[in-house]
Simulated scan of single mutants.
Amino acid sequence: MEKPRENYYLEARKIWSTVVDQDSTDFNDLRVQVAFHKQLLNIFQPGNYHYFVFNIFKVEVELWSEGIIDVLGYTPDEMSLEFYMSIIHPDDMPYFLKFEKRITEFFLTLPYDKIKNYKVQYDIRLRAKDNRYVRVLHQAIQIDYDTSNFYRTLDVQSDITHIKNEGVPCFSLIGMDGEPSYYNIQSDALIPGCNNPFSEREQEILKMIVEGKSSKEIARVLFLSLHTVNTHRKNILNKARVKTPVELVTKVINQGWI
């Protein structure tokens, strides 16, 4: 028998309470901070997206972006955290709770200076205003924290329904600035991303391919020759065991490689 929705909400609150025991007192001008962190974070956006700021201590969302209209059809004024949890697909709710628990456990183990180098990523289905389910790629970073508490996260959700329309949710912890990543985590242990076959440079190019950038654009951004980029693209297709960019994008999302 499925648990009552309020039980899921209470379970989530219990998970989040493990990382904070007081509210932040020095996080001013929320929109300026969001703009700053959006520039710092190289967020993967394969489709329409929206973002929100989650206050962990208050267990509430302090800011919903207007982009939620394009993704789910709701206006920011219609949204609340409880309502958000009520539109999670029933089959995905256990994954959501498990992922959030793993996230809190992981960040509690990180040294303070490493926290800024990790983002969270998983996919989940949400019920849109027109009652269809939209699969979103959820990405989050910590934007307000100290040595004892995690106060706020910046969360970005991109519509990937056109890329992944079936399958179970996938969870990854992405390391930045040279930190290791953990892809498509399925077990209770954190296992380094050995199932990701790409080098660091290939990972950069792969991300741009999925974003729809041409070889010429990639070459310009990474200061590489067109020949070098095309060689990397060929190697990426071979490593992914696919033949076309469309097949590559689909597999990348399903495997949690980005």
Rank of each mutant, 00 (worst) to 15 (best):
E2D: 06
E6T: 03
K14L: 14
W16Q: 14
S17A: 15
Q22E: 15
D23Q: 13
D26N: 14
D26A: 14
D26Q: 12
F27E: 11
N42I: 08
P46C: 09
G47R: 07
N48Y: 11
H50K: 05
F54Y: 15
F57Q: 07
V59M: 13
V61D: 04
L63Y: 04
E66I: 00
D70K: 15
V71I: 13
L72P: 09
L72Y: 08
G73C: 09
E78V: 10
E78P: 08
M79W: 02
S80C: 05
F83G: 08
D92S: 11
D92N: 14
M93N: 06
M93C: 09
E100C: 12
K101P: 00
R102T: 10
I103V: 13
T104A: 14
T104L: 03
E105N: 10
F107I: 10
T109D: 14
L110N: 04
L110E: 06
Y112K: 03
D113M: 10
Y118R: 04
K119A: 06
Q121V: 12
Y122G: 09
R127V: 06
V134T: 03
T147F: 12
N149V: 07
N149Y: 09
N149P: 08
F150L: 15
D155I: 14
V156M: 11
V156L: 11
D159F: 13
I160W: 02
I160M: 00
K164E: 05
P169A: 04
I174S: 01
G175Q: 13
P180Y: 06
Y182D: 03
Y183N: 03
I185F: 02
D188C: 00
D188A: 00
G193R: 02
N196I: 04
P197K: 08
P197R: 08
S199G: 12
Q203E: 10
I205C: 06
L206E: 05
K207C: 04
K207W: 06
K207L: 07
K207E: 02
I209P: 01
K213S: 00
S214I: 02
S214W: 01
K216E: 14
K216G: 00
E217P: 00
R220A: 09
L226Q: 11
N230Q: 15
H232N: 15
H232C: 15
R233C: 14
N235L: 11
N235I: 06
L237S: 07
L237G: 07
A240Q: 01
T250V: 13
K251Y: 01
K251G: 05
W257Y: 05
